[in-house]
């Protein structure tokens, strides 16, 4: 029957629409469902995953010493050349000339956070750090030197 179908159509349509409205209505009335985290206000409590790869970082200990030998493994491992090692020769205590790192240049503007450099590092000198507040107004600021000025290689790291 045409008319019965017509009414059934209308009824079904209205019912399906009301079902949808019920769901949005539920969320409208249940504010506990809100999951927003207010970023700049929650900076104090914000805990990111430890493994989150935000930038490459070279840990320095209290003596301003790091573990980078300047072996260039990371530079080779990096797929898109965002690490550059500038090495220099230093004369160590025994009077021998030895290659050491001068600048570990890291281009954050190109880094893809793939973690291959960290994998490749034989002395565990570089890590991924979970920082993220890195925005700048000039992209030159994103070219960083990872070893701090005046830092040295830690004793015993080969």
């Amino acid at each position: 029957m045409f008319l019965a179908d017509y009414i059934k159509d209308v009824y079904g349509a209205v019912k399906s629409l009301l079902t949808g409205m019920k769901l949005t209505g539920y969320y409208f009335t249940h504010h506990k469902e809100i999951i927003t985290e207010e970023y700049p206000n929650n900076r104090a409590t914000l805990k990111l995953a430890d493994r989150f790869k935000g930038e490459v970082w070279m840990p320095h200990d209290e003596n301003n010493e790091h573990a980078c030998t300047g072996c260039s493994s990371c530079e080779i491992a990096c797929p898109n050349g965002s690490i550059k090692i500038v090495s220099m020769n230093v004369i160590n205590a025994e009077g021998k000339k030895k290659k050491a790192i001068d600048q570990h240049i890291y281009r954050l503007d190109m880094c893809t956070m793939c973690g291959l450099c960290v994998e490749a590092c034989p002395t565990d000198a570089i890590h991924m750090r979970n920082t993220f507040e890195l925005s700048v107004f000039d992209r030159n600021h994103l070219i960083m030197r990872l070893n701090k000025p005046g830092s040295k290689i830690r004793e015993g790291v080969e």
Binding site: Y27, F28, E33, I34, I35, E38
Partner: peptide, 13 residues
């Protein structure tokens, strides 16, 4: 605001 609350977020605040 209505949109925000229905969409489980806060909206302009």
């Amino acid at each position: 605001k209505v949109a925000a609350v229905m969409q489980i977020r806060l909206g302009p605040n």
